[in-house]
Design a protein around this nucleic acid. Structure first.
Lengths: 190, 190
DNA sequence: AGCACCATGTAAGTGGTTACATGATTCC
DNA sequence: GGAATCATGTAACCACTTACATGGTGCT
């Protein structure tokens, strides 16, 4: 059972081209705005991959509009590209390879003083709170009907909701861990 | 503001040497057993890094016991190594660079049929359930006093508890997302 | 004898980030 | 004029995984 490491970046980019033709710059911005919480891509990946996709016939560069102010390179997904994307989506996702530096540092917390860990946890709470509020604000702008009529927004909403739940959980957990480290009553000990 | 990419593997290994001297093999097993849920290291990283740590004076190879049955290379952390580890722990952790393939595929769910996403979610639930039960079993073996007397087990317990909570949340979220995709009543709406 | 596990290591290759380089456009 | 943002790209480098290679030990 060989575990081949195929670049997920390729499919992330293809996935964004699937909804509409975009430039490398567009893709970067779209990723940051929509799935930035659980995915990221750098230009150093995006631009070379767009060229590879075009060379492989999975995407094509659209002819440039002569009247356009800027010289943007717009790529569109091809039928072949759509097939590739779909067959990748259908493969069962890889659950592994997670690395959480916050937990790693906390795990080694005994090597420093309690205050260090408590401080990290407090900062973490602030960070998660900002994300949480942002997501909730975003959620409130989506009309209910757009979610219940199964379509792109339904899936987006599901991932957004995951972010809302996770950030809430992280805050709760971090607060409770602080209590535990301070020798106070923590829910963890149940 | 330069974001230098230092290898976190180095510190993960140093962190495990901090509790007691170990071989590369020991470290791999210990990581899998204790922090495998949120961290992983491969032998391809561990063995070369152990040599580097020794060369840099952050760890040292212990003299081998002539009577020992196996020829294991045991490394111990040095005072300098402990200092390096501590100063790394004190630096604020990096929250970014997360990549969740389950969410990515779900986000692109509209490119396939609903059943594909539902299937992925069902498998995900099974996977998270196994982890969840394992963690809970593990938790029940830790005596309460070992947790409340702040020490290594307190920190281990905190990360373990995070795993218990997260796996539960993931199951709940996945179940609810299935309902949403099936057009049934989901808690997510409202 | 054979299997599972202990144990160490290397080489090749990939996936990915960062820093740099360049220049146009928009808006104040 | 200057700042922010739009926009594309490359080169260097690093972190990490996978596959391979090798052999010992303990048990049945």
């Amino acid at each position: 059972m060989s575990k081949k490491r195929t670049s997920r970046s390729k499919y992330a980019i293809l996935g964004f081209l699937a909804s509409k033709p975009r430039s490398g710059y567009d893709i970067k911005k779209a990723i940051e705005k929509s799935i930035g919480f659980f995915w990221s891509e750098s230009y150093g990946q995006i631009y070379p991959i767009l060229k590879q996709l075009a060379a492989a016939g999975l995407a094509e560069k659209l002819p440039q509009d002569k009247n356009a102010a800027r010289q943007t390179q717009i790529y569109a997904i091809t039928d072949l590209g759509r097939e590739h994307l779909q067959s990748w989506i259908r493969e069962s996702p890889d659950y592994g390879g997670v690395r959480n530096e916050v937990l790693l540092k906390l795990f080694f917390g005994d090597q420093c003083d309690v205050e260090t860990s408590v401080n990290h946890l407090k900062n973490y709470i602030s960070h998660q709170k900002i994300l949480h509020e942002t997501f909730k604000g975003f959620k409130s702008t989506i009309p209910q009907k757009a979610i219940t009529d199964i379509g792109p927004l339904t899936y987006m909403f599901a991932t957004l909701h995951h972010g809302i739940m996770i950030t809430k959980l992280n805050m709760d957990w971090a607060k409770d861990t602080i209590l535990l480290l301070q020798g106070k009553n923590s829910k963890m000990l149940k």
